[in-house]
Write a protein that binds this DNA or RNA. Structure first.
Length: 230
DNA sequence: GCGACAG
DNA sequence: ATCTTGTCGC
């Protein structure tokens, strides 16, 4: 695992963070289908916090897209760079995620984030932000509808319904397990919504959440425990 | 102005 | 996100 400190020019106030979003949001690429499901690599990303000590641990886990076996993984710990502000989550998580990604020797392939892509108040959530900064295809799979609305998808696995911001479809509520609460999929960067949903189904042969995020979640928690001592 | 709000 | 025991189910 590696340690790092946020870049000296990283935003520390909301005003600056919003200005950075406005500059980067124009670089999101939405006209590429992205990597096909079941092939290449898929990389899960997640972070865990210790608010007491202001510590954040990030984990990236590269999976074989066909077998879902772990190909490589890395972690990084650092100091929290930004407070939690809905709409500005990326500023809190990305520095440590980038540090972990830089430790990888493998091609990350498609990056799957725990949160949103363009389904965001300003259409520039965590996944899109990470995609623009790295150039990698990214998507988001969130556990909650955030500020958006949706009609419950039909009961069978694979059923979906639009995730709406007014009349605009910003993502999709996708049922990954029969009769279980759907996950909320959105495009991050260089991936289509249809492909993002197909990828999500390929990553959920057994549980509601993608294997990539389950793996990353377990790893960042372990890294945090080790960093703090427990 | 007030409340809601990914992780 | 995080604080947390037992418990129902595959």
């Amino acid at each position: 695992m590696t340690s790092h400190t946020p870049p000296s020019d990283w935003p520390t106030d909301e005003r600056t963070a919003r200005a950075v979003q406005d500059e980067l949001r124009t670089r999101v690429v939405l006209d590429e289908p992205g990597p096909a499901p079941g092939r290449g690599h898929v990389t899960g990303v997640d972070v865990a916090y210790d608010d007491e000590r202001d510590i954040v641990a990030a984990a990236v886990v590269v999976l074989d897209g066909a077998t879902l076996d772990v190909v490589e993984q890395a972690t990084a710990v650092g100091t929290v760079a930004f407070p939690y502000v809905p709409g500005l989550l990326a500023f809190r998580e990305i520095p440590t995620v980038l540090a972990a990604l830089s430790e990888l020797n493998s091609d990350p392939g498609l990056v799957v984030c725990d949160g949103y892509g363009i389904a965001h108040p300003r259409r520039f959530g965590l996944a899109s932000h990470l995609g623009v900064l790295t150039g990698l295809p990214t998507m988001g799979v969130a556990k909650n509808p955030f500020t958006f609305s949706y009609e419950p998808p039909a009961a069978p696995r694979g059923s979906a319904s639009p995730l709406l911001a007014g009349a605009e479809e910003v993502g999709r509520a996708l049922r990954t397990r029969e009769d279980v609460k759907p996950v909320f999929v959105s495009v991050g960067h260089r991936v289509s919504l249809a492909n993002a949903c197909a990828q999500t189904l390929g990553l959920t042969p057994r549980y509601r959440l993608p294997e990539s995020t389950r793996r990353a979640d377990a790893l960042c928690r372990a890294a945090l425990r080790q960093a703090v001592g427990a």
